[in-house]
Design a binder for these strands. Structure first.
Length: 387
DNA sequence: ACCGTATGTGAAC
DNA sequence: TTCACCTACGGTG
């Protein structure tokens, strides 16, 4: 159940695992029959735009990914879609924190601990090339529901349950990018487009944040959480907000989403607002790198201020968190902290360098890519500064 | 076995 | 505003 951070993370994982490679492309389930057209094409690059994933294939390594021969697979995970990775140790998520994982998108579990990964009896299934090299991994059997399988020399990725998995041409890609609002995780994002849309709308800020034409990539968790961090009532119409408040929401989302893309999990609570135990790393499932925070360091139940915390006391004031339908989804908020009366400048305005800053060398725009690439565990090192 | 739920979207009413 | 859709999993019977 992904928001935009997951899709950027996936884009990085697919590029790391298959980028530049000739790959096997199939639809074990049969519901994406166009997969056959791409069999043994080259996965040129993967791009995330909001919650949309665009995987560009070319017939050979020399072809221009922007050229007319390129084909694009458009994937939207919807509520249920997920990718499952299997392959060499660290495959696709090499450089990620902790152990290699399965099931990016909906849930992640340790590769070694998976009991669902049925190994094929023929180890040669893992071979994607014809050079006779023995793969160091074994292909798992696809579930019957696997819509799309990508298989390279060092691993595979299975897609199940997507809302969309279809072939796009470049004009369809352009139309999609045109339709979407700015994505805080993309280098080409224009925050002013978001600010202008919000300030010009009578719709509530809580609904606007869920509208992908207003801002791309925010989902139900980030909506609730960023509004709490701004101490903003979800039901305030956009036009009643100041430009500074709206820009502050954007500026807060950037490091929050980057953190999510980098670690694979959403954490929005300030350390001082978590319970004391939360600062203790209960257990370690891998070697920490460069003193980086282990993703398990913040237990899920301490990661949010309001999401799914209805009836629980607010972490700040103790008032009972409320929930209510807004824009077809349930919004969660603290009626006291997020009342109009207590509205103030967002948290980032006071603390420009929060704990969500990327550790040095961990993330940044590797250049040449249209997305920020911070999802990419294997993305090039470049210091990413928070404005 | 069945039910409810889930970080989503878009078409139909 | 309601509904259908794509899937997996935990709880309940």
């Amino acid at each position: 159940m992904p928001e935009g951070h997951t899709i950027h993370r996936l884009a990085g994982a697919l590029d790391a695992g298959f980028g530049g490679q000739r790959v096997r492309v199939s639809s074990p389930q049969g519901r994406f029959e166009e997969a056959a057209q791409l069999e043994r094409w080259v996965l040129a690059r993967t791009e995330a735009a909001g919650k949309h994933l665009l995987i560009t294939f070319t017939p050979d390594a020399q072809s221009d990914p922007e050229g007319p021969a390129a084909r694009i697979v458009h994937v939207h995970l919807g509520l249920y879609g997920s990718w499952t990775f299997a392959g060499d140790p660290g495959f696709a998520l090499a450089g990620a924190i902790g152990a290699p994982r399965l099931r990016v998108g909906e849930r992640e579990e340790a590769l070694a601990g998976s009991t669902r990964a049925v190994e094929s009896s023929a180890g040669a299934d893992g071979s994607a090339d014809e050079d006779g090299a023995e793969p160091g991994w074994r292909a798992i059997l696809p579930r019957p529901t696997t819509r799309l399988r990508l298989q390279g020399v060092s691993g595979l990725a299975d897609l199940t349950g997507p809302t969309a998995c279809e072939l796009y041409d470049s004009s369809q890609r352009d139309a999609l990018l045109q339709r979407l609002g700015p994505d805080p995780l993309r280098a080409d994002a224009d925050p002013q487009r978001f600010v202008d849309r919000v300030l010009g709308s009578r719709t509530t800020i809580g609904a606007l944040l869920m509208n992908q034409e207003v801002i791309a990539g925010v989902g139900n968790i980030y909506r609730a959480e960023v509004l709490f961090r701004a101490r903003l009532d979800p039901f305030v119409p956009g036009r009643e907000l100041s430009a500074g408040i709206v820009r502050g929401i954007w500026d807060d989302l950037v490091p929050l989403l980057r953190y999510g893309a980098r670690t694979g999990r959403i954490v929005t609570t300030q350390p001082e607002h978590r319970d004391i135990e939360a600062r203790i790393v209960e257990r370690s499932r891998g070697t920490l790198q460069n003193g980086e925070e282990h993703p398990d360091a913040v237990a899920r139940e301490r990661s949010f201020y309001v999401y799914h915390r209805q009836t629980l006391p607010c972490r700040i004031c103790g008032t009972e968190i409320r929930s209510r339908d807004l824009a077809a989804r349930t919004v969660f908020w603290c009626p006291r902290c997020q009342s109009v009366r207590s509205r103030r400048s967002p948290w980032t305005a006071q603390h420009p360098a929060g704990p969500w800053a990327d550790p040095a060398g961990q993330a940044g725009d590797p250049g040449g890519r249209s997305d920020t690439g911070d999802a990419g565990p294997a993305s090039a090192a470049a210091p990413a500064q928070i404005a």
